[in-house]
Amino acid sequence: MSAGTFTPAPGRAPMRTIIGRQIRMELLLTARRGEAVVLAMGVPLLVLLGAGLTHATNLPTDDRLGFVVPGVLALTVMSTAFTGQAITTGYERSYGVLKRLGASPLTRPGLLLAKTAAILVQIVLQVIFLGLVAVLVGWRPQFGDILPAAGVTVLAAAGYSGLALLLASVLKPETTTGAATLIYVVMLAVGGIMFAAPDLGTAGWFLLPLAAHAQALRDTLMNGTGIPLSIWLALGTWAVVWLTLAARKFRWE
């Protein structure tokens, strides 16, 4: 290796460039999947405007936007990190896309990194867009606790991603699509987005991560009261459990 030490390795493109290309490709593919974009943006937008501006549902507060908008942001994170990712990964696995790209110089860890980064970029763009729309229609958040809000969002996204990859690894793609959609609808119904979540006490945060995440965002962005330890614990548990199981069960083909 003596001569090659000081010359660029002839046989490789830099890993950063490769992963950067793959991230752009993931985002382009997402943009081309119309139904994924509708699910990721359309439904939250509809809920935001419907439940936030009209009296279509009963809320436990008079500040409708203050209740609904944090819930909608949490819902967006779930739809992108969980529902969208589970469906996409399930099909990509069965079509051989994961195996093929993992076989290229992108490598398997590179592919996972690119997918994670693409999901994060998507979430950031969606949250900014929905936040702007909400501010336009009268939402007035406070930004003193923005860091804990971001932290709890990363935890939630990690847990959703873990569950998505796990489902995509153990179920057939059609079943994954069904299960992911069903979980999305159930969470939307009882997750405390359009109505108050069922009061299950602390156990509720462990059962309904969407409700926990939504409440954490309300506490930080609206009330400035900080996030209860039980919510940190609940979302932390989701992240650890699902990511561990996903790492153990993940299949490339």
């Binding site: 390795a9 046989g11 493109a13 051989g96 093929r100 110089p105 490598t107």
Partner: peptide, 16 residues
């Protein structure tokens, strides 16, 4: 990765 970029692979049964 450097080694990987020196080989080419055509897998069985891709259905992309």
């Amino acid at each position: 990765q450097a080694w990987r970029s020196r080989i080419g692979i055509v897998l069985q049964n891709t259905d992309d």
